[in-house]
Every structure is written in structure tokens, then in C-alpha cells.
Design a protein around this nucleic acid. Structure first.
Length: 203
DNA sequence: AGGAAGATCTACT
DNA sequence: GTAGATCTTCCTA
């Protein structure tokens, strides 16, 4: 079996962020470091757009800190919020700013290492939040802008054939000014979806 | 220098 | 479950 075949190609990311956010559910985020592999199934995502999306980093216009959002899809876009690194994947063709935030994973490989990285034992708290998963997978600014479409990359996303039966959507979590459209997507009944406080307000 | 930012942890009721 | 403190860059003045 050819491993490269399972890696999501550039084409996958050249769509609208909302489409990519939905399609990423059930795919596997793979973190390669030295000889170690850490991975997990993507169970929760959020879509962010450009100028017209007040919650997006791109809403401020093209700046040094957000310029990756204008690049062609298929790269990481990583930044810090409240002391947590958040992992996004840039989407759409070049010059259309948009990205998908990876919010939660179901751990697959390297669970013991993730536990060590997080300093906790509860598997349901390992990667069930955007800041938690980056800590578990040792993802930080040093990985900002890397291509996720190459098998040698420290971060890539694979399709391992996991089936997603039902997808739910809600408003995005934690944003000050959200769009009327619901842009958070998650796998229904998956216990690894993040459990934010005041869940109700987002349903 | 000061404050905002897609969050998380802890310690309670 | 809920409130509150605290997390740490980077942006704006």
C-alpha cells in the first residue's frame, strides 16, 4: 500500500473554507517528529473567511501577521490566543483569504506521548480543544506556513477511510462578533468534540 | 506600555 | 456547571 496516496492533495484545500471544514471531519491529522508519529481523527472544525467575516484574522486587511490566509490552500496558519497555539489550514486558491480552524481530535497514534505533552491522563481532555491539541501534538509557531500536502511534512492530513455518519453544525465558539451563518462543524455524538462552557448558546 | 485574542485550568457552589 | 484567574504573543498607540 502506498502511503502517499492517502495524503490529501492540494486540490482538496482549494475549495471554499466551509466545504473544506466539513470534508476535513473524519480525516486524520498526522504529526511527524523524528521517528515518532502522533495522530488523531479530526472531529471538530470551524471555517473563517476574509474581509466580510468580523471574526476572521483577515478582516483587518492584508497584514504581516495574517498574510498566510491569502496564500493558496494547503498550508498551516498558526497563531496564539490566550496563551494557546491554534492550528488552521489555509483554504481556497491564492488571494481568497480563508482558513479552517482544527478544534478537536480523537487521538489515534502516540497517545502516551500526548499524555506526557499535556501532563494529564484523561484521554477525553487530551485533544478536545484547539489549544489542547496543539500542545498534545507539539505544534507551535515554528510550524507556521508549512505545507500539509507533502508526505515529508511535519504535519499532514490523510484520508484513512473513516466514515462520518452525521455532521452537526453550530455557531463558532468564543468569537466576539460571529456571522449569522453557522460555521462550526463536528461529528455528532463523538465524545472527543470540545465541551465549551455555555454550550447552549452556540446551538 | 497596554490591551486584545477562535482558550484552559482550577476551585468552588 | 459556574466564575475567575491566568495563559503569551503580537498589534496599536
Amino acid at each position: 500500500m502506498n502511503f502517499n496516496k492517502n495524503i490529501l492533495s492540494k486540490k482538496f484545500y482549494l475549495n471554499n473554507a466551509k466545504i473544506v471544514a466539513v470534508n476535513l471531519l473524519g480525516k486524520v491529522l498526522v504529526r511527524r517528529m523524528d521517528d515518532k508519529i502522533l495522530s488523531g481523527i479530526i472531529v471538530e472544525t470551524e471555517a473563517y473567511f476574509g474581509e466580510n467575516d468580523p471574526a476572521s484574522r483577515a478582516s483587518k486587511g492584508y497584514k504581516n501577521f495574517n498574510k498566510l490566509m491569502w496564500e493558496e490552500g494547503g498550508k498551516t496558519f498558526i497563531y496564539m490566543v490566550h496563551g494557546n497555539w491554534l492550528l488552521n489550514i489555509v483554504t481556497s486558491p491564492q488571494n481568497i483569504p480563508s482558513a479552517v480552524l482544527i478544534r478537536a481530535l480523537q487521538p489515534l497514534e502516540g497517545i502516551e506521548i500526548m499524555k506526557k505533552n499535556r501532563g494529564i491522563d484523561n484521554i477525553y481532555r487530551l485533544t478536545s480543544g484547539p489549544g489542547m491539541l496543539t500542545k498534545a501534538l507539539k505544534i507551535d509557531k515554528s510550524l507556521n506556513g508549512v505545507e500539509v500536502t507533502s508526505p515529508q511534512s511535519p504535519i499532514c492530513i490523510e484520508d484513512r477511510g473513516y466514515k462520518v455518519f452525521k455532521i452537526c453544525c453550530s455557531h463558532r465558539i468564543g468569537v466576539k462578533r460571529d456571522l449569522p451563518e453557522k460555521l462550526r462543524f463536528y461529528i455528532k455524538d463523538n465524545p472527543f468534540v470540545s465541551l465549551p462552557r455555555k454550550c447552549q448558546q452556540y446551538l
